[in-house]
Nucleic acid binder design. Structure first.
Lengths: 218, 218
DNA sequence: CCAAACTTCATACTTTGGTATATTTCGTGG
DNA sequence: CCACGAAATATACCAAAGTATGAAGTTTGG
């Protein structure tokens, strides 16, 4: 067993994980050995279905899979996973792939596309890049999600005022725009600042940017 | 004031251009015909050197080239062009390419990688995507460049004040931070607003974002 | 060396921004 | 029915931002 002596600390070490999906057990074991040799956690699956049944590991993580899988095609699996909470960077391996396949995979965001046999170092480099991408992506996503949650706690009026205020209008201009008195705008504005947990207008403007506010023209 | 009104058209027609580089004249002509048939401008070159000697056309434009070129490799040419003012989206064609080559090209940002023979529609789709990318990219770049120019017109003090103000500090806090009186900060701040042509603080904050201010390490 | 630009600060004043305290209206859900 | 939150508004007041005028020391390029 030899599980680590980690306790339930709030700031747990990230533990980067590589998920390998391949129907060739020998290759799975070889990759597992390779990844573990550089200190990475590894999960092995023989098919896409097995992976989907499991629960996704914590970030950072990435997927290493063969284009040719039992059941689903690797490319179909890629688009399938991209629009799921399992979404993570993918590195493809192939024994007999072709160029159109490669192009499609790369266009869909694959980190790399390695032809067997590949050099260990190439795989490790690809995995390092993938894990770093996943870390960044997940970080940005979390920040965005948090802000979006705060934003949803605003009332319709407050959202409206936030949009106009962060677009650079003065309180009196906002008031004129939506036919309110200036004092009412001030109150809504105050509520927005508190609810959004913004410490300054600059803060609020940045949040509005993240939310994509102001670009709501139709 | 001798010229009439027709000569001063601020919104000139974009005229999308496709630049084809291939040593096979027959293919060049075929592509030229294809692109012109859908209303695109076309420039033809037999080698990378010829293209580099010419002056880049106005946006939107894109490059269609064979991986195997006389002289330079298509991939080398790609990285060469990426770090030049000629930078534009690239679509590769290949008669006998391999997967590692494809991966390298796509990683370096190629829009597509077509194997000969390809369908006309595939090429046209790729070109349409490339032109749209170029338009967006060039638009974003121009906005960024303009703001950067304004920013460079600021004095050292003004840049400093802008950074602190857009990070959300009040004038008095900025003053304390850099050991000035509040009134002096107000003056610098006013100069910043005028020089940056910002109509509001929200405006200035967005410019600071574009400039990457606030992430000033070391 | 001198003019021009940069930097600093003060005083005085106006405009915005922000908060607090009330009051009124309206609609929803217990 | 009533409590409660949302919305709107007013009055009053204080804090912060912005502008104008004046002035003096420092840098810098021609």
């Amino acid at each position: 067993m030899s599980t680590s002596s980690s306790s339930r600390t709030p700031a747990a070490p990230p533990a980067p994980t590589v998920i390998v999906v391949d129907d060739d057990e020998a290759l799975r074991e070889a990759l597992s050995s390779l990844f573990r040799s550089v200190g990475l956690r590894v999960e092995l699956y023989g098919s896409a279905a097995e992976l989907l049944a499991a629960k996704p590991p914590a970030v950072p993580r990435c997927l290493v899979l063969d284009i040719r899988l039992p059941g689903v095609s690797g490319l179909d699996f890629q688009s399938q996973i991209a629009s799921s909470p399992m979404n993570m960077p993918i590195i493809f391996m192939t024994g007999h792939g072709d160029i159109p396949m490669t192009v499609r995979a790369m266009k869909a965001g694959a980190v790399d596309f390695l032809t067997k046999p590949f050099r260990d170092q190439d795989m490790l480099d690809a995995v390092a890049t993938a894990l770093e991408n996943d870390r960044r992506q997940s970080e940005a996503e979390k920040a965005s999600t948090d802000i979006r949650a705060l934003y949803q706690s605003l009332t319709a009026r407050e959202k409206e005022v936030m949009s106009l205020v962060t677009s650079g209008l003065m309180n009196k201009q906002v008031a004129a725009q939506i036919n309110l008195s200036e004092i009412t705008v001030k109150i809504h504005r105050g509520h927005v600042m508190r609810k959004m947990n913004a410490k300054s207008l600059a803060d609020l403007v940045r949040m509005a940017e993240t939310l994509g506010l102001g670009i709501t023209k139709a």
